[in-house]
Design a binder for these strands. Sequence first.
DNA 1: CTGAGGTAACTATGCGCTCAGTCACAGTAG
DNA 2: CTACTGTGACTGAGCGCATAGTTACCTCAG
Lengths: 225, 225
Amino acid sequence: MGAWEAREAREARDEHRAVPDGFWGPRTTPAARALLDSAVRCFADLGYHATTTRHITAGVGLSPGALYVHFASKEELLYEITRTGHERALEALVAAPGEGDAREHVRRLVAALVTWHARHHTVARVCQYELAALDPQHRATVLDLRARFTATLRAAVERGAAEGLFDVPDVNRALRAIMSLGIDLVRWYRLDGADSPEFLGECYAELALRMIDAPGLSAPRPPGP
Amino acid sequence: MGAWEAREAREARDEHRAVPDGFWGPRTTPAARALLDSAVRCFADLGYHATTTRHITAGVGLSPGALYVHFASKEELLYEITRTGHERALEALVAAPGEGDAREHVRRLVAALVTWHARHHTVARVCQYELAALDPQHRATVLDLRARFTATLRAAVERGAAEGLFDVPDVNRALRAIMSLGIDLVRWYRLDGADSPEFLGECYAELALRMIDAPGLSAPRPPGP
DNA sequence: CTGAGGTAACTATGCGCTCAGTCACAGTAG
DNA sequence: CTACTGTGACTGAGCGCATAGTTACCTCAG
């Protein structure tokens, strides 16, 4: 039995994966993907600075030096995680169909935002809490992705405000409130809890609309749990 | 000029204080208060694990060993900060008057929650993000304070739901949404921004009520910015 | 004199990262 | 088929360094 079969056997009995297949993209090798998975779990549990390279490599049954075969540094690992995480979240947002009026568009955007952050709450936690540990250049790249994310949501809210569907005295304040609903759940959400990501997305989309709806426009209440 | 006058002179030209006078309680000595202030700034900026004892002591013009004259360890410093922060936040919440119906009570509680977290956003950031670095015993003490905090808010929401004022299919989900509004602002709020803590508290209290109000109960819209 | 507060040099530890060497394996020559 | 060789993944000891925490000594107001 070669080393690679032995490692696959170890991986098979590892705890559940941090992300689904395909998340890291097709070019990444199996060992690099396993290291990214392990790093996501460690960074989410302990934080970037409290995580050692030995934690990460031990999580996939490798020795400390193996990390540097696939990544130049611990920081590059964090960069790969946060950049890919932000790219996937942005993809989920722009994939939300823009049909219907601004109200339906915002509903679908918030549902997509919340569903993604709930389903990928471990990666999302790293993306939200560990940006300060990035190199300035890497951080700038990730913050640019964040700006595009926010701009997508802002456009929909501004459109609804212009059409008189929403009552938002300050678009930025409304945006921050909506984003807070989606972002803060990475702090507490667990996949084995009562609410599925999709269900939570629907609930929170309704809450967001209630916050910004103009008076008298509220639709009938959504289904219960 | 003695060493103490020299230190006071250094403090006088320091950047603005992290917390107002009296925050740490009357028993703490001036040197200990200065170290707590410096630690709050460092932990909020860099995170607990990336902060060294040299950072903290250099921030008040002392040598590294001086920290251990006043505190047993870096962790005890974090414990003092998070415990006191949670105590002060809880005090602000229970000080909100409970007069009027449940709707007004929730409004005042959310306003108090948001106002406190905005005004003390630096301490609050440490309280929210660095709990994992606490000793298990210290963490248990702080989590108990958090539970009492949540229970205060939950009681008011449950009362309103029982009276038919609120439409909340799941009290925990509504609570989490409201708490997320208040907690996530420590990530972005700055005191030199456009909204004062009190004004943001009023705005967010209104948003919270819109999320949970039963249909047809919404009051006229609040004042603009 | 006393002792609380503070200093500076120190220790032990554990970190990120390196590098010479091992191993499995694919390709190729004879 | 065997023998040889190049290649890339990986090992594991360990380097240089920065860290948290310790300690012996100093200062000076009361």
